[in-house]
Amino acid sequence: MKILVTGGAGYIGSHTVQTLLKQGHQVVIYDDLMKGHVDALPEMSEGTEFVLGDIADRELVASVIKEKKIDAVVHFAAVSLVGESMTDPSLYYNNNVAGTLALLDVLVQTGVKKIVFSSTAAVYGEPKTTPIVEDAVLCPTSVYGRTKWMIEQMLADYSAAYGLQYVALRYFNAAGAMLDGLIGEDHEPETHLIPLILKTALGQRKTIAIYGTDYPTPDGTCIRDYIHVCDLADAHVLALNHLLSGGSSRIYNLGSQQGFSVREIIATAKKVTGIDFVVEEESRRAGDPAVLIASSEKICRELQWQPKHSDIQSIIRSAWEWHQSYPDGYGDD
Rank of each mutant, 00 (worst) to 15 (best):
M1I: 03
I3R: 02
G7W: 03
G7Y: 00
A9R: 04
G10M: 06
G10S: 06
S14P: 01
H15L: 01
L20E: 11
K22E: 15
Q23T: 10
Q23R: 14
V28W: 02
M34H: 12
G36D: 00
L41I: 12
E43W: 09
E43Y: 08
E46M: 02
E46S: 03
T48H: 02
F50P: 01
D54R: 15
R58C: 13
L60E: 10
V61Q: 05
S63T: 12
V64G: 02
I65L: 15
E67K: 12
E67T: 12
E67L: 04
E67I: 05
V73Q: 05
H75T: 12
H75D: 07
A77C: 15
A77E: 07
S80A: 13
L81N: 14
S85P: 09
D88C: 01
Y92C: 15
Y93Q: 13
N94V: 07
N95H: 14
N95S: 09
L101M: 13
A102Q: 06
L104F: 14
D105T: 09
V106A: 07
V106P: 00
Q109F: 10
Q109K: 12
K114G: 04
K114Y: 08
S118V: 00
A122G: 03
Y124N: 09
Y124Q: 05
G125I: 11
E126V: 15
E134T: 06
E134N: 13
D135K: 10
L138V: 11
C139N: 06
C139I: 02
T141Y: 11
T141G: 13
T141N: 09
K148M: 14
W149E: 09
M150K: 04
M150Q: 14
I151W: 10
E152V: 05
Q153M: 09
M154Y: 04
S159I: 01
L164P: 10
Q165R: 15
V167Q: 03
V167G: 08
Y171W: 13
F172T: 04
F172S: 11
L182K: 11
H187W: 08
E188Q: 08
P189F: 10
L193R: 02
I194A: 05
I194Q: 10
L198Q: 08
A201L: 06
G203Q: 14
Q204D: 10
R205L: 15
I210N: 00
Y211I: 03
G212V: 11
Y215W: 02
Y215D: 04
Y215M: 15
P216N: 08
T217L: 03
D219N: 07
D219S: 05
G220H: 11
I227G: 07
C230H: 02
C230K: 02
C230M: 07
L232V: 12
A235D: 11
L240G: 07
N241M: 04
H242F: 03
H242I: 06
H242S: 12
L244G: 01
S245K: 13
G246A: 12
G246W: 12
G246R: 12
G247F: 05
N253D: 09
S261A: 13
S261N: 07
R263D: 04
E264M: 13
A269Q: 11
G274V: 10
I275L: 00
D276A: 14
D276V: 10
E280Q: 15
E282A: 15
G287P: 09
P289T: 12
V291A: 10
S296Q: 03
S296Y: 06
I299D: 01
C300I: 00
R301G: 02
R301D: 11
S310C: 08
Q313Y: 11
I315D: 05
I316A: 00
S318N: 05
Y330F: 15
